[in-house]
């Protein structure tokens, strides 16, 4: 059964709620929300983590765009 995680893009006001299958990785979530993993750093529940970490119900995923170019 799908679980809900909270997704916040740092610098934007709102936090989205996204439904994912249990065990979905952050990398898969990034694809789903249209973010390129090469351009962001991700904090999972306040800690910077590798994008292969699996998600569980209620997780807070903060996406920090760090690739600004130029």
């Amino acid at each position: 059964m799908a679980v809900e995680v909270r997704v916040k893009i740092v610098g934007q006001r709102s936090t989205r709620r996204v439904k994912v299958e249990p065990g979905t990785t952050i990398a898969e979530l990034l694809k789903k929300v249209g973010q390129n993993r090469e351009t962001v750093v991700v904090r999972l529940n306040g800690r910077i983590v590798a994008e292969e970490e699996p998600l569980k119900k209620g997780d807070l995923v903060e996406i920090l765009p760090v690739v600004t170019g130029g």
């Binding site: 610098g11 962001v40 920090l64 760090v66 690739v67 600004t68 130029g70």
Partner: peptide, 30 residues
């Protein structure tokens, strides 16, 4: 050093930086 790794480096080191995109960035560069 890839740009993402520099972003990660400053975050891990706690170095204060400006993270914003230039408003003129457009066209072929982007």
């Amino acid at each position: 050093i890839p740009e993402k790794e520099i972003g990660l480096y400053v975050l891990l080191k706690g170095i204060k930086v400006h993270l914003a995109v230039c408003p003129y960035a457009s066209g072929i560069h982007t």
